[in-house]
Design a binder for these strands. Sequence first.
DNA 1: ATATATTTTTAGATTCGTCTAAAATATTTT
DNA 2: AAAATATTTTAGACGAATCTAAAAATATAT
Lengths: 221, 221
Amino acid sequence: MSTNFSITEENYIKAIFHLQEVNGMVSTNELAAELDTKPASVTDMLKKLKVKKMVHYEPYQAFKLSSDGKKLALNIVRRHRLWEYFLVEKLQFGWDEVHELAEQLEHVSDKKLVDRLDAFLNFPRFDPHGDPIPDSNGKMAQQEQVCLTELPVQTQAEVCSVGSQSSSLLELLSHKHIGIGTRLEIKQRFSFDNSIEIKIKDQQLITLSKELAQALFVKKI
Amino acid sequence: MSTNFSITEENYIKAIFHLQEVNGMVSTNELAAELDTKPASVTDMLKKLKVKKMVHYEPYQAFKLSSDGKKLALNIVRRHRLWEYFLVEKLQFGWDEVHELAEQLEHVSDKKLVDRLDAFLNFPRFDPHGDPIPDSNGKMAQQEQVCLTELPVQTQAEVCSVGSQSSSLLELLSHKHIGIGTRLEIKQRFSFDNSIEIKIKDQQLITLSKELAQALFVKKI
DNA sequence: ATATATTTTTAGATTCGTCTAAAATATTTT
DNA sequence: AAAATATTTTAGACGAATCTAAAAATATAT
């Protein structure tokens, strides 16, 4: 009795899933920005998704996915990441050029196809961006988050969390133009003071002190 | 400046291409039947496709694709058949279960993706149904395929394509253990009902109705 | 606690692809 | 060649997804 979802509905569900990972709850404006559409359109769709029991939503309140909604979201994420893996691993695309293509391929929702693709790829657990791929039951490995101090040189990584919220740390990060999502490569380590030299795309080399490196958590890319 | 085409428009263009292969020209009713829609809808779409210069169409007249339309059609066919090849060759689907899936995958039209898929599959020249796959320039190998009804008795032949993808046809073929690549010999023809008796290696004689024989295309061996 | 600003929802219009019913054109039959 | 039949097009409506502009609800600030 699996209801049918349009590509548009799937895109809304995926976006809500993504936003609620951060805050737990999602607002109309936030979602409109994420989908590059207008708040009025979001309200219309929320009413539709509520009828289909995919979201917990009351007018003027923040909302989130129902458990069915979450299940569907995980399934879409699974498809997306499997195709990304396929494109990089089998068709030699760069990890930075596959997102758009996977956005299109992910909407082919045939379960048999997805499961066979999974098997063909040898049941990969992480996509080319380091994000975990849900298995056929919707279970997803924990993201491999590593402290910057643990990475060998030449590794590429993306900042995904910071070890504290102290304003002194945030001030320093902003001064060095580092934030969540910043991609960097480890260039050199200095054992004398355990400092690290990194390079952010299109920028000069930057030195991070041991203390700063310890406060940065990244995922490999 | 390659204009953008919706999935619906692509489906119309593919269907016109398929029909005009037979007669050279296509009628509104024919196309409506092929697409399982109403003639009025076909007329609407023809007007749209004419504006986009994809069809030669005048009201109340039979129509056909323009050269641009034909080019697009060949590109869609290319995508469809490459995905069918992928599904059978890499994901272990049966040749009789890939049509629907390829219908969905074919609408991802990124040229780089298609060309890389082609390369990954080693530039196959025929899909799993025996139909030729257009190359990246739209050139398609000719196959001297003959309808089973045209062969004289005692001829040996190999099945290389089927005349439709209807599930009723595929069901019947699978029941009679006939598939792409099956080798057979024409044993006898009956003018009363135009049925044919054939023999497949190591099997008993089998009777094929006129309708079934018309749907089977073979090459002599 | 009242005024102001922000967020969210409604109301009504628009585009795409579809439909039905009726009108226009083309074809076939007599 | 006129009448009957079949095909195709128009006219008007509908559902999905979107938009703008205005109203309603909520949040913030003085």
